[in-house]
């Protein structure tokens, strides 16, 4: 068995592809730098992440694949699911090894799996766009905590900067403890030192803007009034609005 160790970054993964073609040995497993080797290792190689190499691999992919497919690879990477890096590696290898494009050959398991993974992440991206709830803070910044399963928050930034271009906002991934701040001009990545500002997903009342509580009440009242009792269907509600999202939903708090 051939093992590559790398730093578990996307650039690292692309570098691994580059090195594999250079050495003409291809890994059966991709492990983190500090991960122990399995028992029967025939060959072991440590990848040193290299910006230049990773860029060249990416350029090669952009030449061979549709723009959309390149996005799918990024999405699959952001899934952070175990084994997604090995899947991406195999997908890239098949892309380079085949003259004909493999992109729509869904009878190939790797092609199908990559598509499915990308769809999962894209689905969550949509969910975030729908379910982010801003609370207005006293300093006029609109604040929203989220905790997505995948690292899909960065994929929503285009949407939110366009839609809420004239208000300052922060969207914060509490699971990965990082977020993004938009200051009316640009978006910057940020990390909060103090995450006690929003116990239970709600902004501390002292930090809320004056009318924030009122609007939360109005929204809750509206939400309740919209239910048609003759059609109650909690199963259907939960299907569309899985419980794990309720924590940060104003109308469910």
């Amino acid at each position: 068995m051939t093992i590559f160790h790398y730093d578990k970054t996307f650039e690292g993964l692309l570098t691994a592809v580059f090195d594999a073609y250079n050495r003409k040995t291809f890994p059966d497993r991709l492990l983190a730098i500090d991960e122990p080797n399995p028992l029967f290792v025939a060959e072991m190689f440590i990848v040193v992440t290299d910006e230049d190499k990773s860029k060249r691999v990416w350029k090669g992919l952009e030449k061979k694949l549709a723009h959309n497919t390149c996005n799918m690879i990024t999405y699959a990477w952001l899934s952070e699911l175990q084994g997604s890096d090995e899947l991406i590696f195999r997908y890239i290898q098949k892309t380079f090894d085949n003259k004909q494009s493999i992109e729509t050959n869904f009878a190939d398991d790797d092609v199908l799996q990559l598509k499915k993974l990308a769809q999962k992440v894209n689905h969550e991206r949509h969910r975030l766009i729908e379910l982010v709830r801003f609370q207005k803070a006293a300093d006029d910044i609109f604040f929203a905590p989220v905790s997505p399963d995948h690292n899909s928050l960065p994929l929503t930034l285009d949407h939110f900067t366009d839609r809420f271009a004239d208000q300052k906002w922060v969207i914060y991934d509490t699971r990965r403890n990082y977020g993004f701040y938009y200051d009316l001009k640009t978006v910057t990545e940020m990390t909060l030192d103090n995450t006690d500002l929003f116990p239970k997903g709600k902004l501390d009342e002292n930090l809320m803007a004056e009318d924030e509580k009122l609007y939360q009440e109005l929204w809750k009242g509206y939400f309740k009034a919209m239910t048609i009792k003759e059609r109650i269907n909690l199963k259907l509600q939960r299907q569309h609005l899985p419980k794990r999202y309720w924590k940060y939903l104003t109308e469910k708090q």
């Binding site: 379910l131 919209m226 239910t227 059609r231 259907l236 569309h240 609005l241 939903l249």
Partner: peptide, 22 residues
């Protein structure tokens, strides 16, 4: 200087207890 955009695909922001999209 304006607020908002439209997305083309219908965005549901919530679902009431009857399972309908808000």
């Amino acid at each position: 200087g304006g607020i908002g955009n439209t997305a083309g695909w219908g965005i549901c922001h919530s679902f009431t207890e009857d399972g309908r999209c808000v």
